[in-house]
Simulated scan of single mutants.
Amino acid sequence: MRILVTNDDGIFSEGIYKLAKALQEVGEVVVIAPNSEQSATGHSITLHRPLRVSKVKFFDTDIEAFAIDGTPVDCVKLGVEALLKDQAPDLVVSGINSGPNLGTDVIYSGTVSAAVEASILDIPSIAVSMASSKFQGFDEAAAFTCKIAKSIHHISDSKNTIMNINFPTCPSKLIAGVKVTTLGIRRYSNSLIERKDPRGNSYYWISGTAMELEQEDTSDVVAINNNYISITPIHFDLTNFESYEELKKFQFEK
């Protein structure tokens, strides 16, 4: 199996290092990742300037690695359609992200978007994130991701399904188990911070604190809050099928 590994924290982050090393037991690993942090870039791609590619030494490994001055989605597109076009990857794994990608945050996530791009290109994919940036247990998360990578091709619709994994950041003995989950809801308070520059002009930081919201019991947010590993199968078809059936009953005029 050939595995393309990417992320949004940058090619020299600890999470991608631990992930790529662990995945070597599953197959041949090639790392293609941004040369700098690209968190919260969502599904953006670079259209108005050329993309630069640099072959790099990947830590203490012999893993083939390329740094791209673009977004995580750029990395997947460039990898599949150019750098690896002679032998396309069988699997794309994005992560390990330093911080959660839960609920509606997947829309903003560069980590998840890289995996979504793989699915658009008909390649099975996994996105994996730590549930907090304050405690990093990358080794256990990487080992768990390897187990999913080994079995993902047994899922009948694997090419159209992204496995979004969030790994709890409690001590390993406190991990309660694994739950297959649905996407929860994430909203933030104090998400815009206004400050003044030396000339008195306003500028803003987008930040914020996650709000405690009522969630479905099946949600990824609930699972992580109870120290479960969360696996949420997601896909890029955003159609609201309930509304689709309802709208078909309307008599629309030109």
Rank of each mutant, 00 (worst) to 15 (best):
T6I: 07
N7G: 14
I11W: 07
F12K: 15
S13D: 15
S13T: 10
E14R: 13
E14D: 10
G15L: 09
Y17Q: 05
L19G: 11
A20F: 05
E25R: 12
E25S: 15
V26N: 08
S44R: 14
T46E: 04
L47E: 10
D62E: 15
A65Q: 03
P72E: 06
L78F: 02
G79I: 12
K85C: 02
Q87Y: 04
P89A: 11
V92D: 09
I96R: 02
I96N: 02
N101I: 06
L102P: 02
G103M: 04
D105Y: 07
T111W: 02
S119P: 08
L121I: 06
D122K: 14
D122P: 00
P124L: 13
P124K: 13
V128D: 04
V128H: 06
M130Y: 05
S133D: 13
S133V: 06
A143G: 01
K147Y: 01
I148T: 10
S151W: 01
S151A: 13
H153Y: 02
H154P: 00
N160T: 01
L174A: 15
I175N: 03
I175C: 07
A176M: 10
V180A: 03
I193C: 05
R195N: 13
P198N: 03
R199P: 00
M211S: 06
D217W: 00
N225S: 09
N226M: 00
I231V: 15
P233A: 12
I234C: 04
F250N: 09
Q251L: 11
K254L: 11
